[in-house]
Design a protein around this nucleic acid. Structure first.
Lengths: 145, 145
DNA sequence: AATAATGTTTAGCATAGGCTAACTTATATG
DNA sequence: CATATAAGTTAGCCTATGCTAAACATTATT
């Protein structure tokens, strides 16, 4: 490969990386919401928007607006003034998210990071980890035991 | 700690994590831009907005608009129709970003991930890695050698 | 030097994700 | 059961980040 070719390839790879990051970001919020809704349903039988707002550190109205989008995307269902439910797709997404989250957090712990940091960093990292990297992390956790 | 207390602490920790992720996101774009500007200046003596647009996989007009914000934030300087320069703060941020990027990418490689994946995932992950985790990653890379 | 090609900027639009304030509905309590 | 409190909703605002199309400036070519 000539230097010029290599440069072109590099540029394409980089822009692909950025595109993926941007795509990840829009998926991220949806992931956080459904995961949290799943947690609330498991923990206390139902998910209410006040709880979501509190856990996400966001205003109530923001949650309401976001839930509309998630409803349009077929991830959640909700009647006015009632609790929030997940659709089949919503549950699937929540499960995927949880799986990733657990792996990333345990991985960070295995790497020797404190609990608090592991939790905070896992939240940011989990949405940017490819299947390949996730597998490598899981392997590492198993070996470290 | 009673279960109730533990739950409250957990909630606060979680919302803190999400707040940090949101903050990271707004800083992220600035970081990507200055890093890329630094790369372009080093590689070819100057950074032009077309190159940035190409590498970021974004429209020209988007770059122009973003550069205005970065100028307001005191990270870059630019005359109309001229090349883009970094301020002192801009260079500092770019250097920090590069340092992080290198560590995260090498870390992923050391973990056994392919080059392509390492590059792509590093782009997403680097902005969500705390100082503590970064240190742990660096340690791991050294040990793996 | 005139014009073609390239690069930059502006204008105007859209969507996502935040916020506050005002309003409505549901629930709990005297 | 009436009303106070809590929860959910709506309206309207803001900023960030993206886009396209059109206008403008610079540079390269004949």
């Amino acid at each position: 490969m000539t230097p010029a070719h290599k440069k072109a390839t590099t540029a394409k790879l980089r822009s692909a990386a950025f595109k993926r990051v941007r795509a990840d970001h829009s998926a991220e919020l949806a992931g956080d919401y459904v995961e949290m809704i799943a947690d609330l349903i498991d923990e206390r039988g139902e998910a209410r928007c006040t709880d979501l707002a509190m856990r996400l550190g966001v205003a109530n109205a923001t949650v309401v607006k976001t839930l509309k989008r998630l409803q349009d995307q077929g991830l959640v269902t909700q009647e006015p003034y009632r609790a929030i439910f997940l659709t089949g797709d919503g549950w699937k997404m929540a499960e995927d998210g949880r799986r990733k989250h657990v792996i990333v957090e345990n991985f960070l712990l295995a790497l020797g990071v404190s609990e608090t940091t592991a939790r905070i960093d896992a939240e940011g990292i989990e949405h940017h980890v490819s299947a390949e990297t996730l597998k490598a992390m899981a392997r590492f956790v198993v070996r470290a035991r």
